Each structure stands twice: as structure tokens, then as C-alpha cells.
Amino acid sequence: MGTDWRRFPDREHLRSALTSDSWAVLHAAIVEAAPGAGPVLEVIDRVVSAMVYVGDRVLFLFASAEGNPSDADTSVANAVDELLVAEIERGQRAGELDATVPAQWIQRMVWSIVYTGLHATGDGLVARHGVDDLIRWTLRGAISAR
């Protein structure tokens, strides 16, 4: 099943539609990871797995807008960030995550390490099926309580 490219008047409209769809798919994957259900590190593991599962969408978002959403996508992008930050703050309150740094710093670490892992799979450095564990291991070392 292919995309009917003729539905879009030009390349910019197509890119915009793909970007909006990618944000929506990423948001749905993170919601499905059940934020708030269980220990924070386990939730973050599930969120990372969700991000890797829709990794092509994540890479597309970084490539198309360098991670900055358009005005049309701001609300769903903010919802993605709010889910992650809320989980991080919960982990900081519970003593599972490093509380000496801002939650937004940890959120950026999550995005950075996921992006790095996904990019490494594209470069052939790591197999896609094994990158989940590597990302989680690296992330836990970076954000766990000291």
C-alpha cells in the first residue's frame, strides 16, 4: 500500500503532513508505554522502546525540523515533552532519578541518547534489534540517582 502523493499540492505540504503524522505516531507510542504505571526507570525503558519502535519517525522529525515543531504541531510535541518531563519529575521525587539536575536536562538526555542510538543503527554501528538495550544502559548511567 503506497501513499497517494497527488493529494499534496507540493513537496512542502507533503513534508508538513508527514511531520504532523510523525508527531502523532510518536505521541501515541509514548502514551501506549503507560507513563505513570510502575517504577519510573521501567516506564522510561518502555518509553525508549516506544521511541525506538517508531525510530524512523523520530529520525524524520530531527531531520525535517531539527526537533522543533511547527506551529501546527506544537500542541502534540508539547504533550510528548510533558509526558516525559512528568515521568522524570516523578522519578526525581521518588529518588530514582538524579534530582540535582533540571528535569528538562534529563528529558534532553533521553532525546539525545535515543537519537544517537537510532543514528548509530543507520550507520551500521549497532543492529536495530539491539539498540534498545544499549540506549537504556547508557541512559540509566546518565540519569539514575547518584
Rank of each mutant, 00 (worst) to 15 (best):
I113F: 08
Q92N: 03
R11P: 11
P69Q: 02
Y115V: 10
A120H: 01
D133I: 02
L139P: 03
H27L: 13
V40P: 08
P39M: 12
D98C: 10
G91R: 01
R46K: 05
T100D: 14
A63Q: 15
A65R: 14
R146Q: 10
R90I: 11
S75E: 13
V52H: 02
V80Y: 07
V31I: 15
S144I: 08
F8Q: 07
I30K: 07
E87H: 01
L118K: 02
G38H: 06
V58D: 04
L18W: 04
R108G: 13
T121G: 07
P35S: 15
D10T: 01
D71C: 08
T74W: 11
H119R: 14
L18K: 01
E96R: 00
M1K: 12
V80A: 09
Q104T: 15
E42F: 03
V76L: 00
G36N: 03
L83D: 13
G122S: 06
I44K: 01
D98M: 06
H129F: 02
E87K: 03
N78D: 15
I106H: 06
H13Y: 14
G55D: 13
V126E: 10
G55R: 00
E87T: 13
V80L: 07
G38P: 05
E89Q: 14
A33G: 09
G36E: 02
Y115W: 10
V31G: 07
R7I: 04
A94D: 11
S64C: 01
I143G: 00
A28T: 15
W137L: 13
A127S: 02
R57T: 12
A86K: 05
I44F: 04
D81C: 11
A33E: 12
S64E: 00
L26Q: 14
D98R: 13
S49G: 06
T138Y: 00
V101R: 13
L134G: 14
M1R: 12
R15I: 13
L118R: 02
E82K: 07
P9M: 11
V80H: 07
G124L: 05
V54N: 09
D132A: 04
Q92F: 08
D81I: 09
S112Y: 02
A127E: 09
R15E: 12
